[in-house]
């Protein structure tokens, strides 16, 4: 089932002075349950593309369709609400709230969605279990390793029950063991829950696990390979 479609997507920075074509005529479609990696050298437009898919940036031209809803037609308020209900984010620098515990970091996104406390409590404990950090529920981010923080970030992204998760260089700050552990959890979530993951990365370990690899160069899709497995 097609959940996301990018049509004739362009993003040009500094249009009036020295135009930079960060995304150049990208046409892509993503199915439910994909484990897709977007690769490419620095400046190839990976992050810009991810920001546009996530509704954090607007394309100069073209359409982003999620479940046949065009993000371009949304105003800022509607876009924020759409992100809250449909998209999970995992950032390179984890971006957990330092004053909240691991469990509270997962819960707060459900609080934004207006989910009742008992439900929030139940789901955050389940998610902690899924990312294998149940024992760290009451620990603050500063006391967690980078890998553990990123697993909490994944749990937070899942908490809102999104249509897909966008992960921008999620393993960039992790050692190989933590990265491997994180990827195994993500693979498991993809396999067991049919959760869609779209990564932007340089990391060969992530690419190795991907079912589909999209390569960008100068904002253009130069290859789109679906793994046989």
């Amino acid at each position: 089932m097609k959940i996301l479609e990018l049509k004739n997507l362009h993003k040009i920075y500094d249009e009036k002075t020295i135009p930079v074509h960060a995304v150049n005529d990208v046409n892509l479609a993503f199915e439910q349950g994909e484990f897709t990696v977007i690769v490419g050298p620095s400046g190839s437009g990976k992050t810009t593309l991810l920001n546009i898919i996530g509704g954090l940036d607007k394309p100069t031209k073209g359409d982003v369709l999620i479940d046949n809803e065009n993000l371009n037609s949304f105003n800022s308020k509607k876009l924020t609400l759409f992100r809250l209900r449909n998209i999970g984010f995992v950032f390179q620098a984890y971006n957990l709230i330092p004053v909240l515990t691991a469990k509270e970091n997962i819960e707060f996104i459900m609080q934004l969605q207006g989910i009742p406390k008992s439900e929030r409590n139940k789901r955050s404990l389940e998610l902690l279990d899924e990312v294998e950090l149940s024992e760290k529920a009451k620990v603050r981010p500063a006391k967690l390793s980078g890998g553990q923080q990123q697993r909490i970030a994944v749990a937070r992204a899942l908490a809102s029950m999104p249509k897909f998760i966008l992960a921008d260089e999620p393993t960039a700050n992790l050692d190989s063991k933590s990265a491997e552990n994180l990827l195994q959890i993500m693979e498991k979530l993809n396999r067991d829950k049919n959760m869609t993951f779209i990564f932007s990365t340089h990391d060969a370990r992530v690419v190795k696990k991907a079912k589909r690899v999209i390569t960008l160069e100068d904002g253009k899709v130069v290859s789109d390979v679906i793994s046989a497995s």
Binding site: G54, R83, P98, L112, S160
Partner: peptide, 16 residues
């Protein structure tokens, strides 16, 4: 700054 950016990215409204 980064924390506030994250909050807005994940869906916290500007009003909130």
């Amino acid at each position: 700054k980064r924390e506030l950016g994250m909050l807005m990215a994940v869906g916290m409204s500007k009003f909130r």
